[in-house]
Design a protein around this nucleic acid. Structure first.
Lengths: 341, 341
DNA sequence: TGTTAGCACTCGAATATATTGAGTGCTAAC
DNA sequence: GTTAGCACTCAATATATTCGAGTGCTAACA
């Protein structure tokens, strides 16, 4: 059977109505709601077809219809298509300019949550491809060094290094110069064994410190530390009864706290999304098991130089996709413009 | 009316029973539960008295009794008195030794949450009284400096400073030396106007940078940034139906996310608690409005040198006070021993 | 052939009604 | 002072009743 123009219109009307009310929607409602003047009976016939095609279901006999995941899917897809053509003209809710990226992202998460009334998450950009801007060793104690590592985008990482041998102020200075002259401007991938061994050679008796620093750089950048994900508005899920039943809420809250699941989401998104697109996961399409009752809309932001990160909105399946997509696009644009100052 | 020994025993039996079951407890149960052999009828008489005295209530006629806040209070107080005499002998659930305080505290929060099945929070120590260990300025861009500030306990703060004038590698070095020789070892309070103006004088044309740095130090230490509070196990509250009704859960989760309320809790606790005591807030006693349906047990840890922070467990009023107190004491001891390494 | 009015039917939700049982207070007897 | 016994209360549970939104189907109409 084919999805005629009329069926399409009816389907969209059903979805839209359901988004607002959260209640199953019946034929009579649609017969009034749409501009095509049809009686409820005709709508019923069409609805029967749509059900057969798998776009809508009745929660039980003699109830109205609600969209299936597939139903949402076509809704989202057509909507997105229209969105692309549309000229975006949004009230800018200006993110404050922030020196530090982490603060900025935290703010972004909050802004999105407040604006959409859903839960939001923002991942710090993966910095694998990123260039070192500065390495700075300083003495903290007799037996500890502080290594500060600054990466493109002013992401700052601190690590403490234990040292065995006494080390003079002067050699420390030399080490700093050595490290910075050789490593600054390199990306992680650029730091190969050749460079490392050359460095060690030049460091002489302090080659072990060089190893430690390199380790620290690698760790600082790779480790689960870059599981830095900012969340906001998790308690918004309580606004949607369908997410509150049973242990659902608990699981969700847990996922947001642990952040482990969110990280999977980020990884998946980054690998799946071509360029800076917007991705919509509906129900079971979700990469994360715990969120199979939700819809997730993600956007990939790209600050250039490989600094990509993910922004996500998590809400009920009947979320206002339109608003969410608009918001995401807006935020992406703002991030762009801030960075390109 | 007086709270006789027997009444006391009965009250404690009621509380303990209710802690486990969460159900109102009746006279028959108690008549079997206690060692004093009394019939349910006698217990009923005593219970009537206890009710009159305000220690227990019936949620409705013909239901068992549940403890009032006052009831919990005497239970907790007597229990705590016993605890103090008791020799503590707990299986140590070893916190891993961590270089960085923030990691350690994060871990502490998690440990407590897992162990107790309640929500936990750990505040980073207030560092007002604390001594500077290191200040390190480094160039990041042509127009930005990175100021790294390390405080006693290896708490590390980073700030970016905008600079207007070009500044040479050499003067930067001089500034570093100047700042460190004069400021290291001082607590915030020690840095007075005299020192500041003397520093500025010596810095000559770069006195504005000195101001900036001092500002940064003050900000890094004072600001809402030290609203650093680590939470864990927030979803544990779903294990207790009495915290799930209505918007309660939502409010709680929100409070944990915002951390503003938790901060109030910390402030209040620090000011109220004499020394490193354990404080129990039951229901309405809570300093935080949102948690008036909960009980909160807090402990103040003291790492010496004015580094005080608060650890808190938030759960239902019928929480296992005994276990919670034990756990807190245990964790406090472990924190102590780690720091005194 | 597509559209529509009409009607019998379904079934969840809401409401009302009965049943159960844990628990109480009171009284009278030990 | 303690206890057995009994009438009473009331939430919780189960059961029955009603209500109405919504459906599918049929027959008639354009």
């Amino acid at each position: 059977m084919e999805l005629s123009e009329r069926k399409m219109k009816i389907l969209r009307a059903i979805v839209r109505n359901y988004l607002e009310s959260g209640e199953p929607v019946g034929s009579r409602t649609i017969s009034k709601y749409t501009d095509l003047n049809l009686s409820s009976a005709t709508i019923r016939n069409e609805m029967a077809d749509l059900e057969e095609m798998g776009y809508i279901v009745q929660p039980h006999t003699s109830a109205g219809r609600i969209p299936t995941d597939a139903g949402y899917r076509v809704y989202v897809d057509t909507m997105m298509a229209e969105k692309d053509k549309e000229v975006e003209e949004l009230k800018s809710n200006l993110l404050e300019k922030e020196e530090r990226l982490d603060q900025l992202l935290k703010q972004t998460a909050k802004l999105l949550a407040v604006n959409t009334n859903y839960a939001s998450m923002v991942s710090a950009p993966s910095i694998n491809r990123n260039k070192l801007k500065l390495i700075q060793l300083s003495r903290v104690n007799e037996d500890q060094l502080l290594a500060v590592i600054v990466i493109e985008g002013n992401v700052i990482k601190n690590t403490l290094l234990d040292i065995s041998d006494e080390i003079s102020e002067e050699t420390l200075l030399k080490l700093n110069i050595l490290l910075n002259t050789h490593l600054t401007g390199l990306s992680i991938e650029d730091i190969n064994l050749g460079i490392i061994s050359s460095l060690k050679k030049q460091a002489g008796i302090h080659s072990d410190i060089v190893s430690d620093v390199i380790d620290a750089v690698a760790r600082a950048i790779h480790d689960e530390e870059d599981l830095e994900i900012y969340t906001s508005g998790t308690n918004n899920i309580f606004k949607y009864p369908e997410l509150t039943g049973d242990g659902v809420a608990s699981e969700l809250i847990g996922a947001f706290e642990e952040k482990q699941a969110l990280n999977e989401l980020v990884v998946k998104t980054l690998s799946e999304t071509e360029n800076t697109g917007i991705q919509v996961y509906i129900g079971n399409e979700s990469p994360v098991e715990t969120m199979k009752d939700c819809s997730i809309v993600t956007a990939t932001y790209d600050l250039g130089e490989g600094m990509k990160g993910t922004i996500g909105i998590i809400g009920p399946k009947r979320m206002d996709y339109e608003k969410v997509v608009d918001n995401l696009k807006d935020v992406m644009r703002q991030l762009d413009s801030i960075y390109k100052k």
